[in-house]
């Protein structure tokens, strides 16, 4: 939401009430103003290849990379995970000098097909591009994921299955064979879903001095 002014959506940014509560999932609504905006589609956050990316749907195809590895810093219910070793996580204030692996070797944003959206659950609960973290006994990040499980390894997308227990743990897309990542230096790289898992996890961590070879050229 805070980057809206930088992608020519200042008008939309200014409609949000940043002093009021934000919606997390549709069953945990924020203020009336913020919830109404949550329900709107934002085409800037939708990839045309995603079958859930429709003008009447509020889904998002890009999640911040909260970190990587095989063990999260903490998790709730059925593995809704929180990592803090990446570039974007809750209350993170990571600057370029904190990315000691080098901004060319660390993921910042990745593609996802796992945002819970219309069709995913029989009770109609959805997340969206303007979701804030859900902070209850079943809490979860909603626009963040970690490089924990292999790209595309969960076989169902957010429009056909309940992805609330999955969306924080992996990235994925409808592009054949992998998904795109925005690297912290601004480059966009297509990463194959057959990438070596250990290397992939290291690329999501900002300060582990790994992988030793950097991003494979």
């Amino acid at each position: 939401m805070l980057i809206l002014p930088f992608i020519e959506q200042t008008a939309l940014h200014d409609q949000f009430d940043f002093k009021a509560q934000f919606t997390s999932t549709s069953n945990v609504p924020g203020s009336a103003t913020n919830h109404a905006l949550f329900q709107q589609a934002n085409p800037n956050y939708q990839c045309p290849s995603d079958i859930n990316a429709r003008s009447n749907n509020n889904n998002i195809c890009y999640f911040g990379v909260q970190g990587g590895g095989d063990t999260p810093n903490c998790y709730t219910q059925a593995q809704r995970v929180f990592f803090i070793n990446g570039v974007l996580f809750h209350n993170s204030e990571i600057t370029f000098r904190d990315i000691t692996d080098g901004s060319s070797n660390v993921f910042a944003i990745g593609e996802t097909k796992y945002c819970l959206t219309k069709g995913g659950r029989s009770d109609g609960i959805v997340a969206g591009w303007a979701s804030a973290a859900k902070l209850d006994a079943h809490g979860t990040p909603l626009v963040l994921a970690a490089a924990m499980l292999q790209i595309n390894s969960y076989p169902y997308h957010g429009g056909q299955a309940d992805t609330l227990d999955w969306s924080t743990r992996l990235f994925g897309s409808f592009h054949p064979g992998g998904c795109q990542f925005l690297v912290a230096d601004g480059a966009v790289r297509f990463v194959s879903d057959t990438i070596d898992l250990a290397t992939y996890r290291q690329l999501a961590v900002r300060n582990d001095a790994l992988p030793t070879g950097g991003f494979a050229q």
Binding site: N27, Q77, L164
Partner: peptide, 10 residues
């Protein structure tokens, strides 16, 4: 199912 998690408890 517990809360909004379909998988249930560990």
């Amino acid at each position: 199912p517990v809360g909004d998690s379909e998988a249930g408890s560990e």
